[in-house]
Design a protein around this nucleic acid. Structure first.
Lengths: 352, 352
DNA sequence: TTCAATCTTTGAAACGATTCATTGTTACGT
DNA sequence: ACGTAACAATGAATCGTTTCAAAGATTGAA
C-alpha cells in the first residue's frame, strides 16, 4: 500500500501553498481563476482524494448522519431510512445505517460508533432507555432525533406516530366486526411501541362490555416469531382460539397467518379476524390480504431529517415532537366473509 | 457545544501519560492492572469516547467496513447485510450500510464517502461498471469484495450465485408444467443480475420447440413496478396473456400477483403460473404462496466478509470467486391446480 | 505618484489519537 | 549486593487537513 497523496503533494505540484489548495476545495470563490485551475489540474494529475479523517479532526464534524433502526429486516424501517436518505442528500449529507436488531447492546454499540465517527447528527428508533445518552450526545455537539418514539418535547426532538391511537383503531375495528375474544400478539412487551399499541387496544376493550383481551408475548417481531405464536394457537382446542387477533406489526401478522391457515382448518377472517400494523408493501399481497394500521413512512423520515437540520443550524433551539396519526386500512383479513374489499382513506394526517 | 473530552483529559485525571491511556485502549496487555484500572475509571468518569478521526489519521485505517447494497427495500439484500454484520462483528469490525437504490450516481457517491472515511474494506453489489474504481480502491489500500456479481477471479474477489442457472431453473420449471407462452419480467435489463437470469431462461426456451419468451422491462425491481406490469397484462385480451411468468425478483412477482389476482378473473396457477427469484420471507405468505429461486443469503454475507478479511490480512493474496448454486422452491403459484404442496430441497450447495 | 481599500496567497498552529525510542522500575539469579 | 533482563510508563513527533492572522499584490481615486 503506497503512501497516499496529500494536499501537500498537490501544493508542491501546483506551486502554491497548502492553504490555497484547501481553499480551492472549500472556499473556491476566494481563489483566483488562474490559481484554481492550476490546483485542479494538479489534483487531477495526482488522483488526490481528501483524507476525511484529517478534515474531520480539524473541522470537528463530518458530513454524515447516523441512522439506527430497530430492524432492517422490517420494511417499515427501511422505508423510513430511505426517505431520510433522500432528504439528507438534499442537504448535502450522507446517511449511514446501523441495525440494532432490537438489541440494546447493539444499539449502544452503534451509538458509540457514530459518536466516534463524529457524525453531524443521529436519527434513532430506540430499543433501550437512551434519553440520558442523548443528553450526553447533545452536550458533545451531536443532536439526535428520536424516530418512532415520542419524547418530552421540551428536551427532545422526536417524530412518531400515535401508537396508542393506532392500537385503539385496530382493536375497535375488530370489536366493530362483532369479535369479542381478542388476542394481542407482540413483544418484547417492554418495547414502547408494543406497550402503547397494547394500551390503545386495551382502552377499546375496556369500553366494550363482554370483550376480553389475551396478551401473547412473541418475544421478537419477525415472521418467524409470528409463526411460533400461530402454531401454539392452532394447537388449542377450538373454543380456546380467539376470534380476533391484533399483531403489533405486519411481520408478526404474516407469520401468524401462515401458520394458522396452513396448519389448521381455521379460516381468516371467518374463524379469526387478523389485523397487523405498519401496512408494509407485503401486507396487500398476503395469502389473505392483511388489514393493517398505516404509518406515513415517507413523512416520518423526511420530518426527522428536517428536525435534525433545524437543530444543527441552531443548537440552542426549541425542540419539537411531531406526531402523525395512523390510519386504518381494511382488507380481506378483517372483512365480512363475502366482502373482498380493499379500501382505505388517503392523505396522512399531521397533528401538532 | 463544549470541547469534547480528549485522551489528554483522561491522562490528567488518571495521572498517567497520554501514551499510557492509548495503550489501555489498544494494547491492554502492556499495561499493569493497577494503571489500567485507574485509567478505565477516569474514562468512565469523564465519559470519554475516542475520536475516530484522530485515530484514523494516525493509524491509517478504521475499524469499519462499508457495505453498499442495490436496494435496502429488498429483503434479499438486507438479509445479506445482516449476515455480513454478524460476521464482521465477530472480527471486531462494524458495518456501515449504504443504499445505492440501483442508481449508479448514488453508488459512486457512497464509494467516495467510504473511501474518504477510509473504511477497512468494501462489500458492494454493483449497479454500474465499477471494476476500474475497485482497482483504484485497492491501490489505495481498500480491498473490495463484489457481492451478487461474479468477476474475473484473477483480479477480483466476489461472492455470487449462478444467475444463469437460476434463470434456467425457473424457466425449465414453467416449461415442465406444460406452459409454452412465457414472459420474463425484470429491469432495468442492463443490470447484470437481470440480464443473466434472462439469459438462463432463454437457454431453457431455446431447448424447447414451440416455446416463446416475451420480455417485459419493468424498469425497476419493486412491488410497485410489478403491479404496473401486472396491470398492463391484465388489460390484454385473454389470448395475449402468457401462461407462465418468471419475475427477476420476488418483489416484482408479488406485485404482478397482486394486480393479476385482483383486477381480473385470472387465477394463479391455473391461468398463469408465476415464479419469482430470491425466496424472501414474504414469498411463502403471499396470496398464492410464491414459487421462487432461493439464494443462500446467510452464506453469501458470511463468505463475503471472509474473503474481505483474507484480503486484509494479506494484501497481495490470490483472489477468489465463490459461486453458490441456487435452488428451486416450488409452492402453489406453480403447482397443479389441486396440489397445495410446499416443497423444497435443503442444504445450499457450494461450488468452486 | 501615492494611499487606501480590496483581493489573493501564505504558512504556522491547531485538531486528538498513535507510535516508538527512552527512561524508569521490578525481580531474579549469582 | 550487583548486574541484567523483563516489564511499565513516558512524552515528543507525527498523521493531513482547516483556519486565520498577516503579508503581498492589485486596483482605482486623488
Amino acid at each position: 500500500m503506497q503512501r497516499s497523496v496529500s494536499i501537500k503533494d498537490v501544493a508542491n505540484l501546483a506551486e502554491v501553498a497548502v492553504g490555497t489548495v484547501s481553499n480551492v476545495l472549500n472556499n473556491p470563490d476566494r481563489v483566483s481563476n488562474r490559481t484554481k485551475e492550476k490546483v485542479l489540474r494538479a489534483i487531477d494529475e495526482l488522483g488526490f482524494v481528501r483524507n476525511d479523517a484529517a478534515r474531520q479532526l480539524r473541522a470537528g464534524h463530518s458530513r454524515t448522519i447516523g441512522v439506527v433502526v430497530l430492524d432492517v429486516g422490517n420494511p417499515f424501517f427501511t422505508a423510513i431510512a430511505r426517505a431520510a436518505e433522500d432528504a439528507a442528500e438534499a442537504h448535502g449529507s450522507a446517511v449511514l445505517l446501523g441495525d440494532s436488531g432490537q438489541d440494546s447492546a447493539r444499539e449502544s454499540h452503534y451509538i458509540d460508533l457514530f459518536q466516534e465517527q463524529a457524525v453531524q447528527g443521529l436519527l434513532i428508533s430506540p430499543v433501550g432507555n437512551i434519553l440520558d445518552r442523548i443528553d450526553n450526545l447533545r452536550e458533545r455537539g451531536i443532536p439526535t432525533v428520536l424516530v418512532d418514539r415520542r419524547a418530552d418535547e421540551s428536551r427532545y426532538s422526536s417524530v412518531s406516530v400515535d401508537d396508542d391511537a393506532g392500537g385503539y383503531l385496530a382493536a375497535r375495528h375488530l370489536l366493530d366486526l362483532g369479535r369479542r375474544r381478542l388476542a394481542f400478539v407482540g413483544g418484547p412487551l417492554h418495547l414502547a411501541q408494543v406497550a402503547e399499541r397494547l394500551a390503545g387496544a386495551r382502552r377499546a376493550i375496556d369500553n366494550t362490555p363482554g370483550a376480553t383481551l389475551e396478551v401473547l408475548d412473541s418475544g421478537a417481531q419477525s415472521v418467524l416469531a409470528g409463526r411460533r405464536i400461530g402454531d401454539s394457537l392452532a394447537a388449542r382446542d377450538k373454543a380456546g382460539i380467539p376470534d380476533g387477533i391484533f399483531c403489533a406489526n405486519d411481520l408478526l401478522a404474516l407469520g401468524v397467518m401462515q401458520s394458522i391457515t396452513m396448519m389448521n382448518g381455521l379460516a381468516i377472517p371467518d374463524d379469526v379476524a387478523l389485523i397487523g400494523y405498519d401496512d408494509i408493501d407485503f401486507a396487500a399481497s398476503a395469502v389473505v390480504p392483511l388489514s393493517s394500521i398505516r404509518q406515513p413512512t415517507e413523512a416520518i423520515g423526511r420530518s426527522a431529517i428536517q428536525l435534525l437540520m433545524a437543530d444543527l443550524g441552531n443548537p440552542g433551539h426549541k425542540h419539537q415532537a411531531i406526531t402523525f396519526t395512523p390510519e386504518l386500512v381494511i382488507r380481506r383479513s378483517t372483512a365480512g366473509p363475502a366482502a373482498p374489499a380493499e379500501q382505505h382513506t388517503e392523505a396522512p394526517a399531521l397533528s401538532n
